[in-house]
Design a protein around this nucleic acid. Structure first.
Ligand SMILES: [Mn+2]
Ligand SMILES: [Mn+2]
Ligand SMILES: [Zn+2]
Ligand SMILES: [Zn+2]
Lengths: 154, 154
DNA sequence: ACGAAAATGAAAATCAATTTCAATACCGAA
DNA sequence: TTCGGTATTGAAATTGATTTTCATTTTCGT
């Protein structure tokens, strides 16, 4: 189905005149092993916890490469930290982000994709990327608040 | 029509147990005097150029207050800098951002607002804010590229 | 005017991201 | 396989926006 991610990365590396290294393999594996939205720091910890040693700067540089070759997408929520998500095993989507617990709900919307194309045409704009983010309070956080409020009243 | 922005800000200040100061007035005026997406640094320069002296930290803290009271909305594009835009004299909208020249085109979309409400209901999510950002290349940058390319060929 | 509380601003701290650079590793050519 | 030019690594330093600190000043209800 998909071209193997490792293959794709090494093709990218080669075609860019770069070199394959043990560190890059370790980082790619760590990244492919998560299904969350991981920061450079997250990945650096994951790698360290697996008793491998790769410098923070190298994780950072390699994640940029992995994103550049299309295996990762860089997303920023509201905390000023860049996070990466696997693009191969998830289709295009957007995010609902809970302001309380940080939970992230993914969604996709055909309606929005169509509307976006209409807007691009209207403004004669060539789209390279786009992102819709909805911030608010998730159901479980609202429920928890309700419980706390009734407790306060008692 | 609108409650006067100054009135609204001073009401907010008062109700929060804060104090009115000359600096806050200067900063609010500077902010209301622009119609762009201005950073703290932008505003600090605007104020300095007008031969007034307000510390950078005070501009920062005051813009947070102005946003908190609903007179400004904080937006972040892709350069890691927070910018503020006037909410009173512009209605709710989203942004097309040119990756080449940084130009920002504003748009609003009824379709998206409706779709967003549908999604919130679907995921039982209480929306507090949302933002749709489309990155790409604007018409004039595309035209310029074309011109450069034909020049290269010659 | 007094005095408690808040605000100011210069400087320092924070913190993710990025750069530096000397040492090391990669890899194609011979 | 060795060689050698090039890329990579990683610890430490730097960057740059944001945020905090804290001594001093200002505000504003009484
Ligand atoms: Mn996602
Ligand atoms: Mn705008
Ligand atoms: Zn939540
Ligand atoms: Zn442009």
């Amino acid at each position: 189905m998909n071209i193997d991610a490792h293959q794709r990365f090494s093709d990218f590396i080669k075609s860019a005149g770069l070199k394959g290294t043990e560190q890059r393999a370790v980082i790619l594996d760590a990244f492919l092993g998560t299904d969350a939205h991981v920061s450079v720091d997250d990945l650096h910890h994951i790698i360290s916890n697996a008793d491998k040693k790769v410098g923070y700067a190298t994780v950072h540089r390699t994640m940029k490469l992995i994103a550049e070759c299309g295996l990762a997408r860089e997303v920023m929520f509201n905390d000023g930290i860049s996070r990466f998500e696997n693009t191969l095993d998830s289709s295009h989507h957007h995010h609902l982000i809970c302001n309380d617990c940080g939970q992230i709900i993914e969604f996709s919307s055909k309606v929005m994709e169509i509307e976006e194309k209409r807007l691009a045409k209207k403004y004669d704009f060539e789209i390279e990327s786009h992102h819709f983010k909805i911030f608010g309070i998730c159901k479980s956080c609202r429920d928890q608040k309700k419980r706390n409020n009734s407790r306060t009243v008692l």
